[in-house]
Design a protein around this nucleic acid. Structure first.
Length: 519
RNA sequence: GGGCGCGUAGCUCAGUCGGUAGAGCAACUGGCUUUUAACCAGUAGGUCCCAGGUUCGACCCCUGGCGCGCUCACCA
């Protein structure tokens, strides 16, 4: 348990007391009407061409980012969500303003405080746009000192845990999240313009499905029922295609109980969309048009820097068949030759659980030998049917499915297929999955989903795009944590009981001192 | 889960062949009306991540733990 007295810095607490004694409210109830800093800057123009706001009175509100105190003049940068602007606080102007007795109160201000400044917009001798303050209002006192003004927050742990500081104290962080929001906005308007309906399907699933992944499980008390946090919305969205909504999408938070890495977070955001009368080729067109359009609209270019390389996300993207890529990177190994594939797997040291077949091995070899070379953007098409339980087989060669994955920078960004709508074939594939008894595959057949297919699902294309990864590529961030406002972290400062249960094998020291105790 | 690395003042970081620690910023006091990480003088601020061990003595060495980063494995 952290006490308030441990959090608050004594020197600021003392200042708070002095302020209250002086009759100042450190946390006033109301804010002020103000102009965004960026608008003030736009209205200020340049020295050569002063804008219409010069010599007029403006009010800005934001965080006091520092103070350069010259005795009777203080320069201070003020930052709001749109930018940063200098204010100049002069004793003489304050004393002629609406609060002539304020000047001594400047001593109560600290970097990090939230303030508003009203005054005339002008210039300094060095030509910097500056508001010459007539009135300074404290809007909220900061009791915790801000990070060092030059370096900002450098410790990644602190940055992720205290994003509320990182967002204003570290350069560029806010922009990443503004861009993320614009990307989502672009996606919504793009899909709506094509007649898609945004829908919301359950997060709590009675039967896991739609992907292979370990789920989080939970329990509903009133129904006394085990539920899984969704690993994918796919099966519900396709029920809606059966239901005749024809074009649907969901921006879905999915939960997978697996490792954390620079590309994986236990909860992540996925766009899934389904289109009746569509197939995987339509999904390719949607992917490339949407991504390329987002880049053009938001970044103003389709050239993006990611992990030290430049990628051009201009549509159309390259397309290559899975088997061709496999054989190109594994010379002399035919994808259908079980012995050659097994030999190649041995050579690479690739293993799969016994009982899993030839195609699983092919998949492992592909991941190992091909994926790292997929700079992209590239659509890899025609995955082996055997590893695609929800995709429709290619009618010209049913060993492969009408499916593609999109790669950029060796990272999978999207997965799509012509949806399997044959209920009997779907039932067979589900039963195969259940028989595998793999904790990452469903433990039971989703009978209701098969029943939905029995009513008839039109031919349809479906697409899933990893939104976090797309944002990584478009904002040039190496780690998924840098595009998530609050990435999943281990809990800090857990109390004794919890710390103990995790560290249980370390009790040997007390063995003989402890009488037998029922556990 | 494995490997490597990191954890020192509110922040950014030094440091000690093992003799209980420093700088800059922030804070406090004083000075300064045009700075841009302002400057000048002074003051204060530390469970050196935690627990054991070795040692006359541990922030430093050893063992274990906790947290984080990078990376491998798995996946999207």
């Amino acid at each position: 348990m952290i006490l308030m007295t441990e959090l608050i810095h004594p020197d600021r607490l003392a200042k708070l007391e002095r302020m209250r004694e002086a009759g100042i409210d450190p946390f006033p109830a109301r804010g002020v009407d103000s102009t965004p800093v960026a608008d003030v800057q736009a209205g200020g123009g340049t020295n050569e061409e002063p804008g219409e706001l010069i010599d007029t009175k403006v009010t800005i509100a934001g965080r006091l980012m520092g103070m350069r105190d010259f005795g009777k003049l203080i320069f201070a940068p003020i930052q709001d969500r749109t930018g940063r602007l200098q204010v100049g606080i002069q004793k003489g102007r304050i004393e002629k303003g609406p609060t002539p007795d304020w000047w001594p109160e400047r001593k109560f201000l600290d970097p990090g405080d939230l303030v508003s400044i009203t005054g005339e917009l002008g210039w300094t001798q060095k030509g910097e746009l500056t508001i010459w303050a007539e009135e300074v209002k404290l809007l909220s006192k900061a009791l915790a000192p801000p990070p060092e003004k030059f370096h900002g927050l450098a410790d990644k742990e602190v940055r992720y845990r205290r994003r509320y500081v990182d967002l204003w104290a570290s350069e560029g962080v806010r922009d990443v999240f503004i861009t993320r929001s614009r990307i989502l906005s672009h996606i919504r308007s793009f899909l709506e313009s094509r007649g898609y309906l945004e829908v919301e399907t359950p997060t709590l699933h009675p039967v896991m499905g739609g992907a292979t992944a370990l789920p989080f499980s939970t329990h509903h008390n009133a129904l006394d029922m085990e539920l899984f946090l969704r690993i994918a919305p796919e099966l519900y969205l396709k029920r809606l295609i059966v239901g005749g909504l024809e074009r649907v999408f969901e921006i879905s938070r999915n939960f997978r109980n697996e490792g954390i890495s620079n590309r994986h977070n236990p909860e992540f955001t996925m766009l899934e969309l389904y289109q009746a009368q569509g197939d995987y080729t339509h999904m390719m067109e949607i992917s490339e048009t949407m991504i390329s359009g987002a880049a053009t609209d938001i970044l103003g270019t389709t050239e993006v820097e990611f992990r030290g390389a430049t990628y051009n996300v201009q549509a159309p993207f390259q397309r290559e068949r899975y088997d061709a890529l496999f054989e190109k990177h594994n010379e002399g190994v035919s994808i259908h030759d079980e012995d050659a594939v097994a030999a190649r797997a041995k050579e690479l040291g690739v293993t799969v659980a016994p009982g899993l077949g030839h195609w699983k091995l092919v998949g492992e070899i592909f991941d190992e030998t091909v994926e790292p070379h997929l700079a992209g953007p590239i659509f890899v098409t025609h995955y082996p049917s055997a590893i695609c339980p929800l995709a429709k087989p290619d009618p010209t060669d049913t060993r492969f499915a009408e499916r593609f994955e999109l790669f950029i920078g060796g990272m999978e960004l999207a997965n799509a297929f012509s949806e399997l709508n044959d209920p009997i074939l779907q039932m067979e594939k589900f039963e195969e999955q259940v028989a595998m008894k793999d904790p990452e595959t469903p433990g039971e057949v989703d009978v209701d989903y098969v029943q939905a297919l029995e009513y008839g699902m039109p031919p349809a294309g479906g697409l899933g795009i990893g939104i976090d990864r797309l944002v990584m590529v478009l904002t040039g961030q190496d780690s998924i944590r840098d595009v998530l406002l609050f990435p999943t972290m281990r809990r800090q400062g857990a109390d004794e009981s919890e710390a103990e249960s995790e560290a249980e094998p370390t009790n040997e020291a007390s063995d003989e001192a402890k009488p037998a105790k029922s556990e």
